[in-house]
Design a protein around this nucleic acid. Structure first.
Length: 514
RNA sequence: GCGCUUGUAGCUCAGCUGGAUAGAGCAUCGGUCUUCGGAACCGAGGGUCCGGGGUUCGAAUCCCUGCGGGCGCACCA
């Protein structure tokens, strides 16, 4: 990871100059004229040295001239910032080893990522698609950065919704009207025609929808298991032994206020029925026994539910364990649908919706994934199917894939089996810009892993593709003279590697031709 | 009413734990077209970063406050 390496080297160099205890953070300046990286040490030192930052920066530059770090970078102070420019030999050196994945591992913590977990009472829609794609990409990023991740889909196959669903199918089979509180979508009629168990059928349909968009889970966890294994009964027992529950108004309550919730929550209703929450506690109890960190991806419509589940998880933990290191909820903003310029209210109950299958069929897996991964989870997406279909050709994913295909074609034409490392160490602006982006690969992976944000990688892909197209447009490759030719073929192969690697992390294909 | 979240170009969105002149794509207008893949490249116009305070060397970013979206406030799941 290039940034960390530079930070280490620079702070070591500063230490040798007697500047200890500096919180050194490099950043990428917006203006490329300011260099590849910038440091604000001079501002930090200004107070103690009682000197103006620009003077400090100049001073540092001359003092660092003889330091080892000057073998790989040049310093260029501008208005107080100590700007850093990487030397071409260092850029090429880093590129040569880019295919070696660095050591990301910081702990042996086991992560259990739960996402989608849609009710098995109807087909998945585009909203589920967002969580599915997001979750699978996050899992992939975490795995790539050497975390131990288990992905899980929780199937609510035991609640009252499932009964309504079954009743609806049954009613349709018997030719009766579908109950008021049942499900009214057309898919109910399809299920009624089949003699397969509708619940099983629905689950397998969801599975295949997810597979069509490149989403798979390590485990499918059935809620009914918690009931049948007596795990719900166990949790009731456990809570009461820990004095975390009490009876009031004929109901059993959980003292969630002890752990920061607004109010206590009901576990068993006065009619003796379990609440969804109780079963969910049992589920999380089970999960925490299998992992160190639980990560859930939920839509913004469930955010109000977070404090009580967090309270439950907190009650499981030893005093000294920090809840934020054991339980995390990624809240994603909802996807709203627009059709013919008008908002569409989606409801599984009424059956009014656009299915994920429909979207994937129209737009394709790669384009759908990229569309959903391109944006940070906390932006509200407005999805216009007509527009998406129309503009799918202009989806940036094709721009990226095109770059990959172009490279594949060029490398094929070059008829070189192994592209050699160049000894020629000058880089023009196009080559340099591209190289600088490429060596940031693992910084970007790390950043997206830490923030659970695949969109950082999607954005990065676009930047790489853009730098490549620019490079391609301005530099002859196959027709170039040596040693430019070798150097550029080398750049080409490294670009291809980066594109392929990141596309694959995001679950998008990297075609050799298109 | 209370809570969470969001407000950046005409539209869709980036902008990292504060940094230097706020960026992309699309759309619009204009150019490159005997090219190693034109699904490409170049240029132009377009901004009160929702308003107002505060913190400081420095704020789109942090704090407070007002306004506007979205969502949530069950002995539903």
């Amino acid at each position: 990871m290039i940034k960390k390496e530079l930070e280490t080297q620079l702070s070591q160099a500063l230490k040798e100059l007697g500047f200890d205890n500096i919180d050194l953070k490099l950043e990428r300046p917006k203006n490329p004229d300011h260099g590849d990286y910038a440091s604000n040490v001079s501002f930090q030192l200004a107070k103690t040295l009682k000197k103006a930052p620009p003077l400090i920066a100049e001073d540092l530059k001359s003092k660092l001239k003889d330091n080892k770090i000057s073998e790989i970078v040049d310093f260029n102070p501008v208005s107080g910032f100590l700007n850093i420019t990487l030397k071409p030999n260092y850029l090429l050196e880093r590129l040569q080893t880019i295919e070696t994945v660095p050591d990301f591992k910081t702990s042996n913590q086991k992560i259990l990522l739960e996402y989608v977990s849609a009710n098995p009472t109807g087909p998945l829609h585009i909203g589920h698609g967002r969580w599915a794609v997001l979750g699978s990409a996050i899992a992939s990023i975490l795995k790539y950065s050497q975390h131990t991740v288990l992905t899980e889909f929780y199937i609510n196959d035991a609640g009252s919704q499932v009964n309504h669903f079954k009743d609806s199918v049954k009613a349709a089979q018997e030719g009766n009207p579908i109950p008021e509180d049942g499900y009214h979508g057309a898919y109910i009629l399809d299920l009624a025609k089949s003699d397969v168990d509708p619940l099983k059928k629905m689950i397998s349909l969801q599975k295949s929808t997810l597979a069509s968009i490149g989403v798979e889970f390590d485990t499918w966890f059935f809620e009914s298991l918690l009931h049948n294994d007596g795990k719900v009964a166990l949790i009731i027992d456990w809570l009461s032994k820990k004095e975390l529950s009490y009876t009031k108004d004929d109901a059993l309550w959980f003292k969630s206020t002890d752990y920061g919730d607004d109010k206590d929550r009901v576990l068993i209703k006065s009619d003796g029925q379990y609440t969804y929450f109780l079963v969910d506690i049992a589920y999380h109890f089970d999960k925490i026994s299998r992992a160190d960190l639980l990560v859930n991806i939920w839509g913004a419509d469930h955010h109000g539910y977070v404090p009580r589940v967090r309270a439950a998880v907190m009650s499981f933990l030893d005093e000294e364990r920090d809840i934020s290191e054991a339980f995390k909820v990624i809240i994603g903003q909802l996807v709203s649908l627009v059709k013919e310029g008008k908002p569409v209210k989606m409801s599984k109950r009424t059956g009014e919706m656009i299915s994920l299958d429909e979207v994937v069929e129209d737009i394709g897996c790669d384009a759908t994934r990229f569309f959903l991964l391109n944006k940070s989870a906390d932006t509200h997406i407005e999805f216009d199917l007509d527009l998406a279909k129309k503009s799918s050709q202009e989806n940036p994913v094709y721009y990226i894939q095109y770059a990959h295909a172009r490279i594949a074609s060029l490398l094929k034409k070059s008829e070189l089996k192994v592209v050699p490392c160049p000894e020629y160490l000058e880089l023009n602006n196009y080559e340099r810009d591209l190289s600088l982006l490429l060596i940031q690969l693992y910084d970007k992976v790390l950043e997206s892993a830490v923030k659970f944000s695949p969109h950082i990688l999607a954005q990065y892909l676009f930047d790489v593709a853009k730098a490549f197209h620019l490079f391609y447009h301005n530099c002859q490759i196959l027709n170039a003279e040596e040693p430019d030719k070798s150097k550029r073929l080398f750049l080409l192969s490294k670009t291809q590697f980066v594109l392929k690697e990141v596309l694959s992390i995001l679950g998008i294909t990297a075609p050799d031709s298109m």
